[in-house]
Nucleic acid binder design. Sequence first.
RNA 1: GGGCGAUUAGCUCAGUUGGCUAGAGCGCCUCGCUUACACCGAGGAUGUCGGGGGUUCAAGUCCCUCAUCGCCCACCA
Length: 1113
Amino acid sequence: MESNQAELAKAYDAQSIQKEVTQMWDAEKLWHAEPDERPREKRYSIVIPPPNVTGALHLGHAINNTLQDILIRYHRMLGDNTVWLPGTDHAGIATQTVVDKRLQAEGKPALKEYKACEAKGGNGREQFLQKVGEWKTEYEARILGQLRAMGCSCDWDRTAFTMDEPRSKAVREAFFQLFKAGLIYRGKRLVNWDPVTQTALADDEVEMEEVDGSFYYLKYPVYEQSGTGYQPVNDEHGQVAHATVATTRPETMLGDTAVAINPKDPRAASLRGKFVTLPIVDRIVPIIEDEYVVLPIAHGGDENDAKAKFSSGFLKVTPAHDPNDYILGQKYNLPMINVMAPDASISLDHGWGALEPHQKDNETLKRYIGCNRELARASVVEFFKANGLLEKIVPYRHSVGHSYRSHAPIEPYLSDQWYCKVTDPRMAGAANASLAPDQRSSPSESSMGVPPMAQQQEHERDAHDTKNDGLRFFPERHAKTFESWHNNIRDWCISRQLWWGHRIPVWSKTFAFPNDIETDAMEMVYEWAGRASIVFTPKGEWNPRNWNFEDSNFEEYDPKDWNEQIAGEFECFVCIDTDPIYMAETVIAQDLEKAGFTRDPDVLDTWFSSALWPLSTLGWPENDAKAVDYWNPTSVLATGRDIITLWVSRMVMFNQFLENRLPFQTVYINPTIQDGQGQRMSKSLGNGVDPMDIIESHGADAMRFTLASMATQTQDVKLPVDLIDPHTGETFEPKFITTPAGHVVAAPIQEHKGKKCISSYGAASGAAKPTPEMPVAKNTSSKFDLGRFFCNKLWNAGRFVLMQISGQSSVGSGQDHATAAHRPLPTAHFVDESKWSTIDRWILSRLARTVQACNEAINSYRFDNYAKAAYDFVWRDFCDWYLEASKPAMKDPNRREETARILATCMDVSLRLMHPMIPFITEKLWWALRDTNAPSGIDDRFPTFASKKPRVMTAPFPIFDDRMDTLTSGGAERVVERLQEIVGAIRNVRNDNKVDQKKRVNVTLVCESAICHHLENNREFIEGLALCTLDAVGPDAKEPANSTKTTAAGVTVFVVGVIDAGAAEKRKAELTKQIAGMRTKLSNEGYVAKAPPKVVEETRAMLAAAEAELAKL
RNA sequence: GGGCGAUUAGCUCAGUUGGCUAGAGCGCCUCGCUUACACCGAGGAUGUCGGGGGUUCAAGUCCCUCAUCGCCCACCA
């Protein structure tokens, strides 16, 4: 008890408060929750989003963690059974380049050596995974450590990691269910291939970057069929005719299987049925006609079409190396010739050689084999040039997909991958159908429509909980992004050729028909039918015959009957049920491997496991995990805009499919924090601000408060980044430079006060090397001063209140100023309203309205309004006016008891009100308030909890209700506003005339008799706050000599002893202008006739007042 | 190319269904360390609300248009 008060004598120290309060939270585990009997509407849950893919923690995470913690703490204080599950995703350490760098830094073998080891039959993969597992621990500690430092009240007993066994089991179970339902398939498709890390990427893992390239115009000789052979075609000049194609990737011509022309092209008719010969490979390919080909301007193309300017009218078709060509290839049934190895070098070994065995003897081609893309491109161009087949090269700037992992250009690459059929109505359709009706576009606008199953689900959901009618976005406009994503969605490539991740739980083996039908392995397949989902498909294609145990007709699928469907080889894919009837998952896997089945070497896309987060963190699919049914659907997901398609969509689809309900009821999209130039914070630009640095420099509460106040409804907020001089600790604005890519970044080397330091861009880009003389400067932002100033103010106001209500004049000062008025306060149990002044009624009214504003703000996810309302009350109303007004009242024995009660009440209520936003400081002040045992609370209108609840974290959040509403007083607010204006006017006169701040001046107020008593009753307030003595107040008060006249709130104010001739003139001019404006308005017939009478009346009243004032002057 | 958003004080941003003299914080200027607070207090200056048009008695707010900037998606002929 003593210590809490003694410490309050000290200045605000965020660090020590954080430390002390954190210890309490750790010891008492107030954040822990277990399922109980509380009804559904009293359950509240959030699952924390896994951090982003680079593992860089910056304010983008801090803002949504802060906002989520506000919601969690708010609901906990409302008495909800509240849980927030912290977790980490593996993505942050999954990038191969990061892994490789790290391995080398630690003196370990490089990734390729682990791979070589594995290839030779060693346990390279296992060794590698073990190594990465160690880093994970470190990485996880960093992320969870940041959350703790921020004050996030996660349930630390329920931390989850995507790769741990409960989460892994969830992945296997989800995969199994999707597989069984036919929503997972294997396909030979064109994928986004990263040749450096040699893995496929999802569409959204591809980043577009502008690069300077060229258009190469290649001439292909035109041929026609003659008899059994082909002959060159001559043009009108007797020369060999050519079809010129324009391409940015000449090397892919090795895989061309057609040349296309638009049928509208005037040249098309004469080329119909003809062919071209591809140089180098000597392949004769057809000229096909398709409207897709852009007409060149010279042949009727659209002049406004950028492509028409470059088009030659002929399009080379390379189905294996271009997504659009792939579509054409399918349409015209063209061969797909893959000419590249996985590392994007030219190769005959990945399909090409099998299709065209003769190419192995092609001497011209030999020099291209093994070349990488860049070299092959140069060589091909060189060949065309040397043979007179290169028409021209035109420079062209265009955007090219790059891998977000390696930043290498993406190669569209034909390969076998696993896909999740998200285009199925049970997935994308269900996701759109799960939107709340008022956030959904009409069915006619949505190309997906609402599948019958989703309608069914909707019906069940309604029955389940009528309050929640579907997924809801805040701000609402984001629902549109979500919806259109699903309307245009493509199947999701879920396999990745990596090692660190969830391995695809599918075993496969090739069988030959009919010879292998009677083998032991096949007999086992029959036996496993009950514990696995099994697919038979002709080798190399996906044309499955599902064979599930539950399917009573599985006899129909007897492979013996397949002779017409499957000739030759077929493949058997087995996906094991995680909850088999009578045999463990691992035993089946072992049996499979013994029987010659091999597990798929690929791992799943990281978002596959992330998509299960709202289920897997709660213990799904374990039957005894009560938490799943209790807290899923979770209440809210707070996240960034860019995540809507990556993660939100997938969580909705998976949760809907697997559990037939939403993963969360609300998606709150927080603004994206950008740097001062409007650029996203990124590691490579070095413009990210580390929340831990801010916590160190400003405190966690200050950071949280500032972030909350930045959470407006806009989609981006700019946060100018400053640097901290490592030599002096001072903050300064960096000098900026523009990178060739057009980014504005802090110059690598910065100078402040004659000493140099390195910006984080300099360090990240490697442009400057840190030395002891030239260390790296941390990033910060002066924006966080707002929060720090506020916390400091609150702390000091708290000290003052505690001092007052505990009857001490100066806590810990050692001096004894005690007088009669300073003796300890008696404990009053009854509120004596008769002793309340107008100011008392006003502050309680303001407090009630602040509670109301905060309630509304949080419920509508307007965190900025929440912060603003709290700020305005604490600083503007309470500190600026009420605290000052309370000083004389506390010296008056007749009033001090009630005043102390009101001071304590304001503190009690506002601490509870602000705790979700600034948890540390409010907790600390609460303990001190509690220890005073001072009477607080205004009966059941502002019930007090200071003496009843030891922790503010579990005290009730103030809720505005009818009883509290009885304390709102428009009358008191109007009177105090008037008083404030008068005080302001007097201060104004004093300041304008340089009156000594300590000098008390004499003032006379002339007012209407109607308001005279208000002024008289609050004489003390005016005299105290404007440091004056009121000589006379009333309608008949005389103008004193030697005084300056001013007007405030309809009251004429004379300040004696100050002469300011200019003031009256200034005021006259102001009034004249106002009067003119209002007269114009009122002389407008339309205004008087059409504007609401109330508005007109107000204008008239104001005009009258202004005219009266002017007349007096 | 499709979608979303922004443009209000020197800077960062509020401004809810159109209606009092357009606000806040920081910064700037003047004065003041008065026992809650100098991370403070009192006061002050600063705005053609991006440009143009329209609807209306009335537009920062609604509509059209132009300009600039940003983000997401699509696109490598």
